[in-house]
Nucleic acid binder design. Structure first.
Lengths: 229, 229
DNA sequence: GGCTTGTGTAAAGGTTGGGTAAAGAGAAAA
DNA sequence: TTTTCTCTTTACCCAACCTTTACACAAGCC
């Protein structure tokens, strides 16, 4: 399936150059030489992505984009003469997805077009099952839950974070300083027993097996024992 | 409550600089100073987006990305010292969403982060058009009504939006920031209790079941309970 | 054995996040 | 204009839960 690009650019030479190159890269290209045409083509619903020059003879590219964003979330890549920074920031604020300074390398344009189209395809793909399984535990990040034998564990936010970090490193030791940083988001200070408490509570909720699932490595940290398989 | 950025960068000074700036811009930041930590944090920790330096002491950033792409479509922005063109193209081919050459302007980084997150939000909202059924609830987007047992609920415009977003993500946790953005169309500011009020009113109108249909996930957001299966 | 250091955990303390009533503010309708 | 409807803000309260404290034990070292 060919992706349809709308190219809005007033410089005939550049437009044709890009158009031809895009065609060789498997895109089907529509062209507009000014803002008005560009806008109506973009709203005409038969393109997948827009490459939009900012400097246009009639309507400013940013205004075209503003108009467009009132009606659609069509992906838009802005093109502009080597830009001053604030220009860029404004472009993004108005709703651009990407921004390439001219003179642009056609290969880079294509790479960015494809990256953006790929992102959209990924996003619209039905929820890729992101769940991860460790023995009898299953982590469901979307639900922010961890299931044991199919039943949800009643974990607090912090407990979830801690267990989830341990599981992500299942089988290897996670140092206390790292666990603190990654799960609690702060540094481990002397005499801080917070982490120990969370571990203790987690062990309780996981059922106090012997040997314990969460193994203590004295002087270092903790390690989730991978269930024998 | 904010968007969570994972910053993988070995240069301590730069990392801290960016980290601090991102924090001021309303992101919650996780850091990693090498590829291995970055990878396990990206896979384990749930973060929303990754900023990944290519030059890292242990694993090359591109290899980190490759590894990541084998498992997830987590959005990734590459950072790199050289603006070498082929480098860029390779970065995109491996699956990067964006690419910023160092030294990068923090404001541009933020603009690109936000553009990418916004794109994802748009895409995921995209399939919210057809009429849908969730247990005894039926959403009719064209009428902007939601029916319970065939009878229309008397919802205000905002309540409709909120419930509709929750239903579109039924079963998963919708963070308050996202719910605010998607349903109310603005950012969640500190001490803003508007959303809580709408939730409270919705619960009343849906009938205060036990367990509640709209579940609170403390510190995060809300989740519409999927009809038991 | 003593001594030191690290860990387990119960219980108390304190902070924060969320529920919701009620008042306020805006906008639309009458 | 007044009325009405809806959204937002304020205020108070409670429950969740993170952190601290305190004490006990276990491991390693001499």
């Amino acid at each position: 399936m060919q992706n349809r690009v709308l190219l809005v650019e007033d410089d005939d030479e550049l437009r044709q150059l890009l158009s031809r190159y895009l065609a060789t890269q498997g895109f089907s290209v529509r062209e507009a030489a000014n803002g008005r045409d560009g806008l109506s083509l973009a709203l005409g619903q038969d393109c997948d992505i827009v490459v939009l020059d900012i400097m246009l003879p009639d309507i400013n590219g940013l205004d075209v984009l503003r108009e467009l964003r009132g009606k659609t979330h069509l992906p838009v890549i802005l093109l502009t003469a080597r830009g001053d920074e604030t220009d860029r920031i404004v472009g993004f604020e108005v709703g651009a997805d990407d921004y390439i300074p001219k003179p642009c390398n056609p290969r880079e344009l294509v790479a960015r077009l494809q990256a953006l189209l790929r992102r959209i395809a990924w996003d619209q793909q039905a929820d890729v099952d992101a769940s991860r399984v460790y023995g009898d535990l299953r982590v469901e990040p979307d639900q922010r839950r961890i299931y044991q034998h199919g039943k949800p564990l009643e974990l607090t936010a912090t407990e979830y974070e801690v267990l989830q970090v341990l599981l992500a490193h299942a089988g290897s030791v996670v140092r206390k300083t790292d666990l603190m940083q990654w799960a609690l988001g702060r540094r481990l200070e002397a005499y801080d027993r917070t982490l120990d408490m969370h571990i203790s509570n987690l062990r309780k909720k996981l059922g106090n097996d012997d040997p314990p699932r969460i193994e203590t490595v004295r002087g270092l940290g903790y390690s989730y024992r991978v269930p024998t398989q």
